Amino acid sequence: MSGTLYLIPNTLGKRDEFDPLADVIPAGVQQITAGLDYLVAENAKTARAFLKKLSETCPLAKPIQQIEIRELNVNTRESELAALLAPIREGRDGGLLSEAGVPAVADPGANLVRLAHTKGVRVRPLVGPSSILLAVMASGLNGQSFAFNGYLPVDAGERAKRLRELEQLSRKARQTQVWIETPYRNGPLLEAMRQHCAGTSLLSIAVDLTLPSETIVTLPISDWRPERLALNKRPAIFSLLAA
């Protein structure tokens, strides 16, 4: 009989900023995670750091060195997924651990989850922080209809085109459009929005979600200025509702 594939959420910031860990990861989720001896993670080193933090409040079933961790990231080939799922198909419970937030949402792992369903393996998602949902919740924009668009193009021309497309879609469908950016490109992205989107459209930016420095601001684009919110090198979620 197959084991269970648990989808394990992680913190959204540095692990040493959470004391206790239960501020963002529920106690029940910690207990399930602590009882596993097989994990699939984007990075084995940071997965061990998470387990070390977890062990401060929830004893692990095995020493960290004895917990098997295999990596699944953007470089993982489709042909390698079966081997990652094999221990669970053989009856061992295992976890898919996100690098930050929840697994398989803006995060590698969806293909492993799909394979688990194909092979009849039970999939159990565990409760934890999602930067996308937290940002939409706190934006004041349309939470009944929203779409996550991942990263926008790096090329300035392509990015401008995509921004206009998303704004038009938002206006037509009254749908909140959500995306993220590499932290060091947050400033240029904001400037591009000021140049290419209507001043009346509402833009919400949420940075450092769940951290002590968390800041969420929603304003018409015409009111946004670079000095309004320090964005450099801070994880941010951008939400737009055309008006």
Rank of each mutant, 00 (worst) to 15 (best):
L126E: 05
C197M: 14
F148D: 08
L219W: 03
Y6M: 04
L36I: 08
A44M: 01
E17Y: 10
D93E: 09
R114M: 14
V102R: 01
K161Y: 10
A173G: 00
Y151T: 09
T200R: 10
I132Q: 01
E17P: 01
T46M: 05
P20I: 10
P220I: 05
T200P: 00
F238L: 03
D16V: 09
E165F: 11
A106S: 15
L7M: 05
G150R: 11
G95H: 08
R159D: 03
L152S: 09
N142R: 07
S204P: 08
R171Q: 15
T215M: 08
I25H: 08
W179I: 02
C197N: 10
R15D: 00
A41H: 09
A147C: 14
F50W: 08
T11L: 00
V40Y: 12
L166A: 08
A198V: 01
I67C: 11
T11P: 01
R164C: 13
L84C: 03
I64H: 08
M137D: 09
S222H: 13
G128P: 06
V113R: 06
S139I: 01
S2V: 00
P183W: 04
L51C: 04
P129Q: 01
K45V: 13
Y38V: 05
L81P: 07
K14V: 02
V178Q: 04
I64R: 09
A106M: 09
F146Y: 13
A44G: 15
T11G: 12
L5Q: 02
L115A: 10
A86Y: 10
R171L: 14
M137I: 14
V207N: 07
S98F: 06
L211K: 15
I67L: 11
A22E: 15
A206F: 03
L12W: 08
P188H: 11
E181Q: 03
